[in-house]
């Protein structure tokens, strides 16, 4: 008799599958239903309420602008950091350790850190005042200074979220044997040619993961915005939060949640197409 043990893998992954089904799949279905129904029958009322709201366009615009501003800069900074640390011999681990500190800070805490810097009585104003650059406390985070507020939030987000991109990119760079760059160098490629024609194509898989992860997270931006600007700068998750907690309208909140999911999925698909990783062209 043959001892058939092919069921063991299924047994081992069953708990995680059940866990995910109960706590993610089920709520997901419920949320979608909540968004597209009214009183138990299918309806577009919640979506119409969402789209008709004053803050809706603002939230869409702000979220997209933030994503467009933050993600490319994070990728560039992470690439620069990864390339620099690749040249470091001794102390490399320490540098990486310091660079990844923001990973361990919750986004609300990160928002509060930047609030202490940028609020009216914050460190930035104290510094500018003692340097004689301003005569009285300047306002950076009010609804009257939307550009300054936007930059403040973007900087805080970049500071907070670059570490994860860097970790992924450093891992990707570690996968590329140095002989590729050396071969390119011997055959006449300069620094930038080596980077764009050899290194960048070879870390495509890492780049793709980092882009998807960071973009999805950027569309979900909330805590930093909330800490710095309150409701002065509406974003999509912030609106979902407002409808859920202040307006107690779970249907519209669900509609926002579904919208964010659709946008994230669409972005992921775009990346999968645009940054195509052909397994045939990998080492």
């Amino acid at each position: 008799m043959q001892n058939d043990k092919s069921w063991i893998p299924y047994l081992l992954i069953a708990p995680s599958v059940i866990f995910l089904a109960l706590l993610f799949l089920l709520p997901l279905v419920q949320t979608i239903w909540l968004a597209i129904s009214e009183g138990g029958v299918p309806s577009l009322a919640n979506l119409q309420t969402m789209a008709g709201d004053l803050n809706f366009r603002l939230a869409i615009r702000n979220t997209f602008l933030l994503t467009l501003a933050v993600v490319p800069i994070q990728i560039m900074i992470a690439l620069a950091m990864g390339s620099m640390v690749a040249k470091v011999g001794a102390g490399r681990e320490t540098i990486l350790w310091i660079w990844t500190i923001p990973l361990g800070i919750s986004d609300l805490a990160a928002g509060l850190v930047w609030l202490s810097i940028l609020q009216n009585s914050g460190y930035l104003n104290s510094l500018l005042f003692s340097a004689g650059l301003i005569e009285r406390q300047a306002n950076w985070l009010s609804y009257q200074t939307p550009v300054a507020l936007f930059f403040a939030i973007a900087i805080a987000e970049i500071w907070r979220g670059t570490a994860i991109v860097m970790v992924i990119i450093v891992a990707g760079l570690n996968q590329v044997p140095k002989e590729y760059r050396e071969a390119a160098e011997v055959f006449g490629a300069g620094r930038w040619t080596r980077f764009f024609r050899i290194t960048l194509p070879l870390i495509k898989p890492a780049l793709q993961s980092a882009l998807i992860l960071r973009t999805v997270l950027a569309f979900e931006v909330f805590a930093v915005v909330y800490a710095l600007g309150g409701s002065n700068m509406p974003v999509l998750v912030g609106e979902a939060y407002t409808w859920q907690n202040q307006n107690q309208n779970y249907g519209v909140a669900a509609a926002y949640a579904v919208l964010i999911m659709v946008i994230s999925l669409a972005a992921t698909l775009v990346y999968l197409k645009a940054v195509k990783v052909d397994p045939e062209r990998l080492p």
Binding site: P177, E179, E182, A183, E185, V186, F187, G188, L202
Partner: peptide, 20 residues
């Protein structure tokens, strides 16, 4: 001189043939 200005070519142990 930079490697490229030395007029040489090299074959590496792990080939270093560009996969992409």
């Amino acid at each position: 001189l930079a490697p490229k200005d030395r007029g040489l070519a090299m074959v590496f142990q792990n080939y270093a043939v560009f996969p992409h």
